[in-house]
Amino acid sequence: MAVLIGVDAHKRTHTLVAVDEVGRKLAERTVQATSEGHLNAVQWAGQWSDVSFAVEDCRHMTRRLEQDLIKMGFRVIRVHTRFMATARRSGRQPGKSDPIDALAVAHAALREPDLPVAALDGPSRQVKLLFDHRHDLILERTKVINRLRWHVHELDPQLTIPPRGLRSYSTMDSVAAHLEGFSGTVARIADDLLARCRELTRQVNQLERELRDLVRILAPSLLAIPGCGVLSAAAIIGETATASRFRSKDAYARFTGTAPIPVWSGNNVKVRLNRGGNRTLNHALHTIAVTQARGSGRGKTYYDGLTARGKTRKEALRLLRRRLSDVVLRALLADERTRTQPATNTGQEAA
């Protein structure tokens, strides 16, 4: 009998609920969120022969559990939180508890056949960590710049700083030289904020250089797509994780949020914009689509053909994004095959 174990993960404990093929609850167990607790969960699951796990997609909360289960040979399905919430609302048992949530995770995994499957951490994990860290530093720098502008305005209302000028070292040097003529608490705070802004800019630029070196090695085919820069490629690699875990281009399009949602009844077929999916991936594809629409090549030709047939600019960009989703998936798969091919050839030569 095939058994699916839904997991409701927390910092201290994990609650597991086992269900059969039709979603009937078989048993439940709570273990510690440690490697020893994960081993206890595997030993408990050993009472069934064919077992898979489904976890709510809370990456940092469930990453150690996912890695331990995969290393022990189990298939781990990631369930988006919105699916779990829907399953819980439609359940027969009212309320909210760890066993109810774990059961909802299992039911959502049974109902949705195209959910992503977790894989062992690879180079894409490093890209995602660096990309997210760079994004956090940019947000912090924006806060620092906003505070700095208010203090500079208080010191000298006539000093004009370009809208994005404080991202460049030359503008920072100019502002620092101007602040040397002021004294007092406000001037000291402005100097501290300017120094912090300079340090954050240095870190952001360093992270971008690291990402450039990683992406050039991991995804040369992805970078070859017109309009795909280093940061867009890094976002795609980090959020996709492993392209081979998607069973088809349509499943990947649903993941990226580029697949339209059907909203029709009868003979009049209609679709609407998909506002779900991975928004970071969707934004990266949108950036590539806008760049291609403004440039030249096959993307520009496709975009112009759509607008010539009466499509609006937004509609044409959405259709171009959907086509780019397939192009990006093919490039990712090609790069993954290239990375694994040398290892395969080496093993054959050694044999």
Rank of each mutant, 00 (worst) to 15 (best):
G6E: 00
L148A: 10
N267M: 03
T62L: 02
I5T: 01
D57Y: 00
E66A: 14
Q292V: 09
H38W: 09
T280L: 07
M1K: 05
L333S: 06
S265K: 11
L110C: 02
L211F: 07
E208W: 01
R164S: 15
A119T: 15
T242W: 06
I77G: 00
I70V: 13
K25L: 08
L166C: 02
F131L: 09
I217N: 10
P99L: 01
L329G: 07
L69Q: 09
S325T: 08
V55F: 07
P157I: 04
R59E: 03
T287L: 15
T258G: 06
K270S: 10
D173I: 14
D304F: 09
L329N: 04
A308E: 11
F83E: 04
G266E: 09
T81E: 06
V230R: 06
V144C: 11
R12N: 08
E154A: 13
L16S: 02
K300N: 14
S90A: 14
V328A: 06
F83S: 01
L306M: 12
Y169M: 12
A33G: 09
D121Y: 03
P260S: 04
A104L: 05
F255H: 12
H153L: 13
E140V: 09
G227F: 11
I237F: 00
A176P: 03
I145F: 04
L285P: 00
R78L: 13
P220V: 09
A85N: 06
R247H: 12
K314V: 06
D132V: 07
L69N: 12
S35T: 01
L200G: 03
D68I: 05
T34E: 06
R245V: 10
S35V: 04
D57G: 03
P116Y: 05
K71Q: 11
L166W: 02
